[in-house]
């Protein structure tokens, strides 16, 4: 497929997901933490009923980079692990699939904090 076309799709998908978030912020006054929670849970649910996979196929990074993609990774991970290990997979699945991202966030967060100091915008 034409590379430009892929990138347009990525841009469009990612943009739309963020736009939905913006409407939620402006209309409901949800705080950022709540917005993130809503998107993660929505992503996970949409994955479990098979919808988010289509969005990923269409928008690629446009669907995986937004935090709903984190929900997708969690839900997809747990389904794969349950297939492999049965009941134990319920416990290991989500975190195994997202381990790298969580570890990276903790590590970078810790070191960023060590080397910078509080500052006003």
């Amino acid at each position: 497929m034409d590379v430009l076309m892929i990138y347009l799709r990525v841009f469009f998908t990612g943009g739309i997901i963020c736009l939905i978030g913006q409407i939620l912020i402006d209309k409901t006054k949800l705080t950022p933490a709540r917005i993130l929670v809503v998107f993660v849970v929505t992503g996970a649910i949409l994955t479990s009923i098979g919808i988010y996979q289509h969005i990923i196929d269409f928008g690629k990074a446009g669907a995986s980079v937004p935090i709903s993609g984190f929900g997708y990774a969690l839900a997809k991970g747990v389904i794969t692990e349950v297939d492999k290990h049965g009941f134990l997979g319920i416990f290991t699945g989500g975190l195994v699939a997202t381990a790298a991202g969580v570890a990276a966030a903790i590590f970078f967060g810790y070191f960023a904090a060590l080397f910078s100091k509080p500052h006003i915008k």
């Binding site: 849970v41 996970a44 649910i45 994955t47 479990s48 935090i67 984190f70 997202t98």
Partner: peptide, 18 residues
């Protein structure tokens, strides 16, 4: 909260799937 709700919802999904 993202991790808490993300992990919990993934476990519920996993349980239902199982």
């Amino acid at each position: 909260p993202v991790l808490v709700y993300g992990v919990c919802s993934s476990m519920i999904i996993g349980f239902i799937y199982w």
